[in-house]
Write a protein that binds this DNA or RNA. Structure first.
Lengths: 153, 153
DNA sequence: TATTGTTATACTCTATAACTATA
DNA sequence: TATAGTTATAGAGTATAACAATA
């Protein structure tokens, strides 16, 4: 990870300072770093946590459905599920209604890790939002949700 | 790029919906896609545009200073500058004050591409923010700027 | 001693295309 | 015909560690 705390003079970023894309990028990198740090204990990445949450909230969901919900290709999901299965957190069961698809479930250990991870993820969020008041943090999430609803709605 | 416009039923993303990190990630992917689409004409990526802007706003800046300002390693900058130099957009000049470092400048073509790119980048931003009112878009950037100031301040 | 640019290397995340087995 | 899971492959983007030249 590059040095973000350096006491060097702040370089003028020019018109970048008015670009939403730039600030979204910086904020996302910051959020991922805080998330990863907060989740150390579980060794679960942001992407993996998304998958665990989808499965926890939709028992028996298929790999393709998880991929669609998270906005990635289903081929990308294979290795992710492989990793979670190898760690004993997720189980691929045969779907009772479609012999092509896997019904994904959390193992007991997966459920534990997920529940613990949810608390830790909230800690990461709090650190990311530490420069904002509670009200501002809520405002930010509300705006982001609205922005995103345009694409996955 | 995965299908984000599918008319499939929306899967319940559970507690993800309350995580700032999740929404930042979705928004950033959306913003990058819109940026890339808007910039097609220039064939300049978000990362490259950041570098062009830094150089435009700080003529003679060093590679290390660009890297620090953008929050990446200086080793990462080498290939980026190489690419921009090979396209004839950026020039590495010897620094007049430090024989270790390069003084980066935009070529005339680089200046042109940068100025055109800035307009196109704003178009990308507008598309990203299309679900928000003007006031909300400003609010969002303000909040993100405040959030980010905590790390690069 | 510290910093600049560089190289070599590797890792993560992701996409595309094609295959198979089902639906 | 279309979809689910899979494989093989490739491309961004990035980091770490080391080195020579210079500060």
């Amino acid at each position: 990870m590059p040095d973000t705390n350096s006491k060097k003079q702040n370089t003028n970023v020019g018109p970048l300072n008015d670009l939403m894309t730039y600030h979204l990028r910086r904020a996302q990198v910051c959020a991922f770093n805080n998330f990863t740090e907060a989740m150390t204990e579980t060794q679960v990445t942001p992407g993996q946590f998304g998958v665990l949450t989808l499965i926890a909230s939709n028992k028996g969901i298929s790999q393709s459905a998880v991929a669609r919900a998270l906005g990635v290709e289903r081929s990308t999901m294979v290795a992710v599920i492989d990793g979670l299965q190898n760690r004993g957190l997720v189980v691929r069961k045969p779907s009772p209604t479609d012999r092509r698809s896997n019904a994904l479930e959390l193992s007991d250990k997966g459920q534990e890790i997920y529940e613990r991870g949810l608390e830790l993820a909230k800690n990461g969020d709090r650190k990311t939002a530490s420069a904002l008041s509670d009200e501002e943090a809520v405002q930010l999430v509300t705006l982001l949700r609205k922005l995103n609803s345009a694409i996955d709605g």
